[in-house]
């Protein structure tokens, strides 16, 4: 059907020279490469499952993750539950399912915020250059020189009690800390790709035609400089999930009663020798979630980079 339609169009509007090259943009080209890549499908399925888990955990389990049956505390997988119970008598399977929400929320919101701040600042310093560039680059250097984990620990400790009020605020606290320290690497990336795109002829042509700076940025520079940012943002989404778990592991990020893989892993690590299943399942879920986003970033990078084809 599609082939027939294309053939008809070709007949109806013959081009000069008689050869019709199929018009393909970078995006459709990339999509074509992605579709054929099994890694992309694996990661897409992983991300879809975890996102579904985050939005609608009751789809996967009917058990309340906060229902503590102390009599069956530390029971092994298969003794009435799929993954066994932890030291509080919680069903580990239900905990793993409900833990996805915190990780996905932190990952997605941190990435959105870091992309907005980093991308915006990178765009400004790349497009305007000069004093703006120097100022923003130095500010970025300051944030960049503080290691993410250390800075996040200090930042989280210094936030007022107000942020411990409810679930959303606790999540926001971690998001703020990670985005606050994570934007400079994205800003540097955006700046360098804007600087690469800016001297191109089509940008000069748009300027000569009298397009406003906002129009030049929106319809010429942004679409052509966004690809590296998307790739790195996807990969760092996985990284932010890992950092969230690390912070929760250290007892600084999310706090119980919030449910997070990091908290469960931290509680399970004391029983490493006697009840390794308590550590194994949350670690598996966490690693798979991180893996999903890293694989996706990798696949998208391969699809966007003509050199790897």
């Amino acid at each position: 059907m599609t082939d027939a339609a294309v053939a008809e169009v070709t007949v109806a509007e013959p081009r000069e020279g008689g050869v019709r090259e199929e018009e393909r943009s970078l995006a459709s080209d990339a999509w074509r490469a992605l579709r054929g890549n099994p890694v992309f499908w694996v990661s897409a399925v992983l991300i879809a499952v975890f996102t579904l888990m985050a939005i609608w955990p009751s789809l996967f389990t009917n058990t309340d993750p906060r229902e503590a049956i102390l009599a069956e505390s530390r029971s092994r997988p298969g003794d009435g539950t799929w993954f066994g119970r932890d030291i509080q008598g919680y069903d580990i399977y239900a905990r793993c399912i409900y833990g996805a929400r915190a990780s996905i929320l932190v990952g997605v919101m941190t990435t959105a915020m870091a992309v907005a701040i980093g991308g915006g600042i990178g765009m400004i310093s790349g497009y305007l250059g000069g004093a703006w560039d120097a100022t923003f680059s130095r500010i970025g250097d300051i944030f960049f020189s503080i290691p993410l984990l250390l800075g996040a620990i200090i930042f989280l400790s210094s936030l007022p009690e107000f942020f411990n009020d409810n679930y959303f605020l606790v999540i926001m606290k971690v998001v703020l800390a990670l985005a606050f320290l994570g934007w400079p690497s994205l800003a540097r990336l955006m700046r360098s790709s804007v600087i690469q795109v800016k001297p191109n002829d089509y940008v000069q042509a748009a300027r000569a035609l009298g397009a406003s700076p906002s129009r030049i940025i929106r319809s010429h520079i942004l679409p052509n400089s966004l690809a590296p940012l998307i790739v790195v943002a996807t990969i760092s989404l996985g990284g932010y999930i890992a950092v969230e778990a690390t912070l929760s592991f250290l007892g600084i990020g999310l706090q119980p009663p919030a449910i997070s893989w990091g908290i469960d892993i931290s509680a399970a690590i004391v029983g490493l020798r006697t009840t390794p299943h308590m550590l194994f399942f949350p670690s598996l879920f966490l690693s798979l979630a991180v893996l999903g986003f890293i694989l996706m970033g990798d696949a998208v990078r391969d699809a966007l980079d003509p050199k790897t084809r």
Binding site: A242, T246, I265, I269, S283, I294
Partner: peptide
Amino acid sequence: LVVISIPVFVVGGLSQY
């Protein structure tokens, strides 16, 4: 890829064990 996606505290606990 597998190593990258396993957080360092899990690697630490497992290798310690």
